[in-house]
């Protein structure tokens, strides 16, 4: 089990996100991970306390072990296949989500709203966008079919009341709207930021703060959010990243490609 060592005082935002997200994993889970913080967090969990956790990559890999210092630039390079159990066509690895073999989908986010919907397609109006973003990739599929963790920076411009465009569905308009739209399974479970950890109300499906990181106030989280946040009845304070957690991250990403 987890070996508790003393907290470390210096870490980057990405390292904080990876550590906090890794602690949400459970041994034995099958995790569909994006590149960057999601991959680092899943690998960290695997190394420290979840040896039976399996990572899936959208490129078609089941159960890889990433070589430290050789992090893949996307989920589709040969680096993603190192010491894996199996490689599949893309369509078939995504179909594992539809069939129900995946416990957690885990990705980064550009823009999120109060119901956990994600936008990675358009900033502004889709017909006349201010910025055309790269799009869904597998994001729409993953978030339509399984329980989601999103890790992102907590900024007002990223946390908006309603996203400009729903690329990856969260709880849509709240309540039972997700189920009614034909998405009976999965949904946004946790949002991890550099300030807090958030979940969603069981009834209204509105985002609510579950935990604050060490030294962060409620006001600070609210100030950096573009809509009124709910706070859970009992807010916990997360333990800061420990030296052993940071050591693993720095071994995996020695050139700080994803942890700068």
């Amino acid at each position: 089990m987890t070996k508790h060592t003393k907290p470390s005082s210096t870490f980057t935002t990405s390292e904080l996100l990876a550590v906090m997200a890794s602690r949400l994993m459970t041994n034995g889970q099958v995790v569909f991970a994006g590149i960057g913080v999601p991959l680092l967090a899943a690998t960290l969990a695997q190394r420290l306390f979840a040896p039976q956790l399996t990572i899936l990559f959208e490129g078609g890999t089941i159960g890889p072990f990433i070589v430290p210092g050789e992090l893949p630039p996307s989920t589709n390079e040969q680096r993603c296949t190192r010491r894996s159990n199996m490689v599949l066509p893309i369509t078939d690895v995504l179909l594992l989500l539809q069939r129900g073999y995946v416990d957690i989908g885990f990705m980064g986010g550009a823009q999120i709203d109060r119901f956990g919907n994600l936008n990675s397609s358009f900033i502004g109006d889709a017909e006349n966008p201010k910025i055309r973003l790269p799009g869904t990739g597998g994001g729409n599929d993953i978030s339509s079919l399984t329980n989601m963790i999103v890790a992102m920076k907590h900024e007002k411009r990223r946390f908006v009341a309603d996203v400009d465009f729903i690329t990856s569905p969260g709880w849509l308009k709240g309540g039972g709207t997700r189920k009614d739209s034909g998405l009976p399974q999965g949904g946004m479970w946790r949002v991890v930021t550099d300030l807090a950890i958030m979940g969603f109300d069981d009834e209204t499906r509105q985002m609510k703060v579950l935990g604050l990181h060490h030294g962060v106030t409620r006001e600070q989280v609210q100030e950096n959010t573009g809509f009124e946040l709910k706070f859970d009845g009992k807010i916990e304070t997360t333990a800061p990243p420990r030296a052993d957690e940071l050591a693993v991250l720095r071994e995996l990403d020695p050139r700080a490609l994803y942890t700068a």
């Binding site: 397609s121 079919l145 569905p169």
Partner: peptide
């Protein structure tokens, strides 16, 4: 592509519902 490979006109699926995609 898979539907095309199978010689059938469409494939049923459970994603892209509810979203703007």
């Amino acid at each position: 592509y898979r539907a095309g490979a199978m010689g059938i006109p469409f494939m049923p699926s459970r994603t892209m519902l509810g979203s703007d995609v």
